[in-house]
Amino acid sequence: MIKGRVYSTESFGAVDGPGVRFIAFLQGCHMRCKYCHNRDSWDRKGGEERDVESLMSEIISIKPFLRKGGVTVSGGEPLLQPEFVAEIFRRCHEEGLHTCLDTNGLVMRRTPAIVKAIAESDLILLDLKQADAAKHKELTLTNNRPVLEFAEYLTSINKPVWVRYVVVPGWTDSLEDAEKLADVLLKMTNLERLDLLPYHSMGEWKWEQAGVENPLLGVNPPPAATMNRLKDFFKSKGIPVS
């Protein structure tokens, strides 16, 4: 029986893919984003061990509400548990439910299990943190080359993708940042839309709870003028943006 470690679940999500969705947030992440709002999801040994059957029972119990939506697996980073993801999505397809994978794309190797998880995903939500390599390293403590290669792979197999980009004041909100991101997105013929997400501080308390200093403590959400400027820029490039 395939088991995985689950951080939490949400029965009626509305922002992690199309329609009303059941969302499973899996435990464990290899990025260390300064703006992470689920700081307690990093530890791969944390969360609760669940088997696929128990998760599917939870999903099926609200299946009538998911007909025009579906199931999203997020994190943490779900591709650290690819077998679990693939089996959940396989079962969802048996139930006629749309599947969506929310990933940071930091996949070092395309193992058979990861390829299967991607194949079972009807839609990928790809969280691109920063297109600039140096800024990405400082923001997440990881290299963005594997992320960009993952984006190229999704394009090569024509997998539908929504890119999500968090606008963090001082980190990802400049037009220079946007231009580098646009260079990546314009090569993605499989891109369906770009979601610009304003940074928020609602997860600050989790850093405090973990006894770790929040590197963005005191940073406010970006003003509407910044969000509108970036949205207009991407539209001017012909990139579909929400």
Rank of each mutant, 00 (worst) to 15 (best):
E10G: 05
N214T: 07
L186Y: 08
E192F: 09
A117P: 07
I114W: 06
L141A: 11
K237G: 00
P82I: 07
T172A: 07
N144Y: 00
D177Q: 04
P221W: 01
T140F: 00
F22T: 08
N214Q: 08
S54L: 00
A210W: 05
G4I: 06
G70W: 00
L154R: 05
G69S: 03
Y7I: 01
S174G: 07
V167E: 06
N220Q: 14
F84A: 01
G75A: 09
R32W: 10
I157V: 13
Y153H: 15
L194Q: 08
E48T: 13
C33G: 14
L230N: 09
L66P: 04
E53Y: 04
N158W: 10
G69V: 04
E120V: 09
K45F: 15
R164M: 00
L139F: 03
R39A: 14
E192K: 14
D43Y: 13
L97T: 07
P223H: 12
A210E: 15
L148P: 03
V71S: 12
T226N: 11
L97D: 04
T226Q: 10
K231R: 15
I23A: 09
L191I: 11
I62L: 09
Y7T: 11
G70L: 04
K137D: 01
D183H: 05
C36K: 06
E77G: 10
